[in-house]
Design a protein around this nucleic acid. Structure first.
Lengths: 218, 218
DNA sequence: GTCTATACTACGATAGAC
DNA sequence: GTCTATCGTAGTATAGAC
């Protein structure tokens, strides 16, 4: 383990693209800038990726796959829906906090539909499939909690949206969020505080008022 | 009232800019495109605004002022913090649902810090001041609710972030959100459902578990 | 697989006539 | 206040040598 492996050009381009696209979006980043930061020429980018849009999709997909991998253990764990959901939120906040670019990239991927020129490249289909997998897992988990009576009769879809807002949006909010909180978003202290706030919101806001959160329904 | 007033060129440019910047962001919109949609020449834009960045700031500021005006009555109303907060959320969701571009513009303004070239134009200071006013009002309202014992001992700052995520992010989520929900985000039905979900989350998630929500403390 | 050179288009911004 | 014309730069993408 810990092989001394030189990073391939392709990976280097993806790394640079991830950072740059997160910061300035698809339209805001030039391939010149990416090439320089990756210490390659512009033409070399086109050898590895068929177009700028394809590069962007590959960057997004790599992020989504990493995210899926991080959430999988928490999603597949056994336990009550609440306990599992809290585990998912822990894992999600962990990965967002560790990779600063992830939240912005995800948010951009979500709401910059028509940033990409015209309709779907082949790369974007794989991306959407990965995203759909993650979301439907979360939705199923919440729906299960409602069905078993641990959660209030909330809408699973709306709750997913709320939780994305509470996590992905939060860590994507940059200078704005930091100024609002009065401390850097990614400081250990702020991350811990966010985790507590989100989880307590879930405990109080989603569960049935008089149910014991730890109870295992039949 | 209801004067038959021809819209000034300046307003027309702002209208076009609002729609375009919301959809594609600062970097994604060209002034050529704006000029054509406003039925003016590119040069005319520079007569009304000193630069593209200045136009962008003016667009954002107009949106923020409209938002502030919409929230003011709800913020200044009397009543318990919970009742007032619910009123604010109603007003916020109303204005976001009515002007589709607003949520995306706000979200972009929040997390696209360094999209704008270098440091602050004069226009951007006024913008930030308006935003700070709105936020501190909301924060104060939540803090009051905690102090009076109607809300749990939550962090007012984090709660503001969560509520922004639950509203602004939601209505900015575009095709993604529509696909997740299974219906258009801005349909009357979906807007109503969102309002209910957010307000019930606030009622259950923010208030003290055994307090009567309608009680008037002190 | 990486480079230099280049094609073509669009960009933001300015000059100056009307 | 609006226009045409133009400047200089940077954009994505391709051709072809090595």
């Amino acid at each position: 383990m810990a092989e001394k492996q030189v990073v391939s050009s392709r990976e280097k381009i993806l790394d640079v693209g991830e950072a740059r696209f997160a910061r300035r979006g698809f339209a805001g980043v030039g391939l010149r800038e990416v090439a320089e930061a990756a210490e390659l020429s512009k033409s070399t980018l086109f050898h590895h990726f068929t177009s700028k849009a394809a590069l962007y999709c590959c960057v997004l997909h790599r992020v989504l796959l990493r995210l899926e991998e991080s959430l999988r253990p928490a999603l597949e764990r056994s336990g009550t829906p609440l306990a599992r959901l809290e585990g998912v939120l822990d894992a999600l906040i962990d990965v967002l906090a560790e990779h600063g670019a992830t939240s912005r990239l995800l948010l951009r991927a979500i709401f910059e539909d028509d940033d990409l020129p015209e309709e779907s490249l082949p790369e974007s289909d794989a991306l959407n499939a990965t995203l759909a997998r993650i979301l439907s897992s979360m939705e199923a988990l919440i729906r299960k909690g409602v069905k078993e009576g641990q959660f209030r009769p909330i809408s699973a879809k709306h709750t997913v949206q709320t939780l994305i807002g509470a996590t992905v949006y939060h860590f994507a909010s940059g200078d704005f969020g930091a100024q609002l909180l009065g401390q850097p978003l990614f400081s250990a202290e702020a991350v811990k505080a966010r985790r507590e706030e989100v989880k307590s919101l879930v405990r109080f806001g989603l569960t049935m008022p008089e149910s014991a959160p730890a109870g295992e329904p039949s």
